[in-house]
Nucleic acid binder design. Sequence first.
RNA 1: GCUCGAAUGGUGGAAUGGUAGACACGAGGGACUUAAAAUCCCUUGGGCAGAAACGCCUGUGCGGGUUCGAGUCCCGCUUCGAGCACCA
Length: 946
Amino acid sequence: MEYNFIDIEKKWRETWAKNGTYNVGEDSSRPKYYVLNMFPYPSGAGLHVGHPLGYIASDIYARYKRLNGFNVLTPMGYDAYGLPAEQYAIQTGQHPAITTSENINRYREQLDKIGFCFDWSREVRTCEPGYYHWTQWAFQQMFNSFYCNTCQKAQPIEKLVALFEEKGTAHGLDVACSEELQFTAEEWKAMSSVEQQEVLMNYRIAYLGETMVNWCPALGTVLANDEVVDGVSERGGHPVVQKKMKQWCLRVSAYAQRLLDGLNTIDWTDSIKETQRNWIGRSEGTEMQFRVKDSDVEFTIFTTRADTIFGVTFMVLAPESELVAQLTTPEQKAAVEAYLEATKKRTERERIADRRVTGVFSGSYAVNPFTGESIPVWISDYVLAGYGTGAIMAVPAHDSRDYAFAKHFGLPIIPLIEGADVSEESFDAKEGTVMNSPMAGKETLKGFSLNGLSVVEAIAATKKFVTENNLGRVKVNFRLRDAIFSRQRYWGEPFPVYYKDGMPQMVPAACLPLELPEVDKFLPTETGEPPLGNAKKWAWDTVNNCIVENEKIDHVTVFPLELSTMPGFAGSSAYYLRYMDPHNNAGLLSEEVGNYWQNVDLYIGGSEHATGHLIYSRFWNKFLFDLGVSKQEEPFKKLVNQGMIQGRSNFVYRIKDTNTFVSLGLKDQYDVTPLHVDVNIVENDVLDVEAFKAWRPEFATAEFILEDGKYICGWAVEKMSKSMYNVVNPDKIVERYGADTLRLYEMFLGPINQSKPWDSNGIDGCFRFLRRFWNLFFDKQDNFCVVAGEPTKESLKTLHKLIKKVTDDINEFSYNTSVAAFMVAVNELTQQKCNNKEVLETMVILLAPFAPHIAEELWNRMGNEGSVCDATWPAYDESKMKEDSVTLSVSFNGKTRFTIDFPIDATKEDIEKATLESEQTKKYLDGKTIVKMIVVPGRIINIVVK
RNA sequence: GCUCGAAUGGUGGAAUGGUAGACACGAGGGACUUAAAAUCCCUUGGGCAGAAACGCCUGUGCGGGUUCGAGUCCCGCUUCGAGCACCA
């Protein structure tokens, strides 16, 4: 019987859809398991074979869990907002909603062919009002919350207002803020409403902040830090400049410590955790106050090397620091201004590319609080305004950047570590014994000295001294910045915000979702407003129809709406929660549903989201957890990163200035130019010459120099992309081999977490395997030949060996080795001519997660009711594996020479005795003496001889 | 510069410290066939030996070490990949 995958797969695809086989609900009688894929952005190019890799891996796991009695949720949806659709709209006038919807349909069609067990009834699209309602809602909750550092939790902003009314800022709580403010209850009460709102903005988790942002002129929008790579935009590669702008921000930094701590509780790869730790960048140090000489100005610096206070020979301010204006003396004013002007002109990219030492003296001196010495204050762009306090104490002997600066400007360098040679470079390591702290004979504050201590001890001693003497405080700094949350774009979630007296107000809950309006054009307005500024009618209608009515305010007043939209990560930050309860109109998700599904047990996706989506959604979830909406502190318990599938390009070699192409093996005899050739007209690196001629008009008359009658192409591993003609479409594979073969092959290609090139050459092996498997069930006359009865001992052994291997492998996501194990088992069963029902039925269940269509078909043919999805995963029975004897290899000095069979229950002594008495041993000993004999029953015999 | 990861045949890749190269592709040889396709069987890390049989040597990026025994563990390198990077 022919293995007719086309009919089989079509039949079951339809049956599953008709029966809703993969739809799930809450079921308290079974344990839940939540498997999630990072949902795709539906691009115009459709899926290539790399995309389904993670989906297949998660599908196998989901099906395996279901066979083990779990109620498995595996939903799918689309991250539908994004730049490409908008860019396309600008170019063609085609509305992004239409493009997106077309792309989604194409994706769905392609996905459906691969046989996933997604519950499509739960599909979400981030661009639909029913979905972004809750994105907007969450934003409003963040606006209405502040972060309490003391209780490590988000709290309602009303609580902070109440504290201000009672005690001003002296309320005793440590609260996350943009800027430290001080006022009394009386001062608070005396403020106008607008002033109070301005103050509160300093504390809100979603706040409007005037900060330096990454402005991308070409895209006409601001970008988040993770969207800027090497000074250019991640999308499109346009230059990015620093600009001070008023933008919506999320106070992600407030959660820095929790984001860091949470990493220890989740089962993610070390590399992703490490990447996030770097990105969060916790650094423990000391803030110290320095007085400016002959002035009452004081400023604060941050250092992790408080112990080097005696080696400070100058101070440096960031050019953007507010202190620059205060500390610049009249004599230096012109020089400083010239420097600031020059710095401003340099883009981030230029600063990275060109690391010249630059700087200017401010004219002022600071006073070392420990020694009273005067230290010049400089200004340089190697100090960043956004980190710490934007001011540093420079210790050239023990910091390489300070060292370069000191050498360049001829400033003194004082070594502080015994034996450290600082004549050529600084000694940055935190080790050694401290000296010159203070230098012999120098007086210091309260006689403080660090000499003779180790660096670690000296840091601790300085911290203690600084705290006790009010010179500063111990401080933890994070590199993690607040996320900039506005984009001056059309295709995104509108902010549910309007302005009154210049202050933002939340659109009333009754007006949510605030829908994205139609616009005439997708570009910014002539007055420079974001694209939503083109939607005048929308603004008017919204104000009149909903906000005015709900807020009971005067119709005559016109309130402008926020015209920015939210960034890409807004919609993807809590989608896993929405999948739990996608049709709920009363809330993001219900209490009951949240309690059942909790959080994602297994999350699969690419590691490129390490510092973007995977940080933002952890932050977002923690916030919702504080609100009690999410039930777990961490959204994704286990994370598996699938590797990238790279392209395998093929090349033909054209002899220069001719239309003649020479085969790979002969190309070195000619002067040739390699050209990419479409991999779809190459098979096993042999070019289909006729197809090549038809491919392009200019090749129609091409001539070929063949080897062995074939044209052999060269190949290379490159990114899978259209321009390299190496894109392989999964539809083509499914058409030719079937979805089950595609699934098996994608897994067989190698470990799931490794990047590897797609190579269609190996796929035949998987197809042959399925055909052999299929043939186990049919005899030579094409009759279904599976019969009930007692299985042979051999077959049971083969089966249980496989059960153990596959179960272990699935749990470790080692799918390539389990596919290999299937191949071995099927070969063995073929040789055994096994047609036993018990064995073959179990084989079908084992294969069901990998190749569901063929498994379902055979399950059905064996007379089973229902779907193989609801079968029970077989238990491994060790007794079926019991052997009568065991083969042990005998080694001499670790070198294996021969093997001997022993009864399974042979003791160590039996083995030793039998080995020594064997003829082969005697032959190998040949006059040598035995020094030692190691016997590990069941494992190894090694004899050490001399 | 710092952090993490990797390196095994022609290729993708297997190996709880115990016979390295499972499985698959490719290649070579053979069977069947008028032929092709399909299918099946044998060989396949390198080298040596041989009439045959049992073979022998060598081999997991490089150099050391631990061990009866190391692809695997430890120390020191090399190369490649990823992340962070004037973060004080």
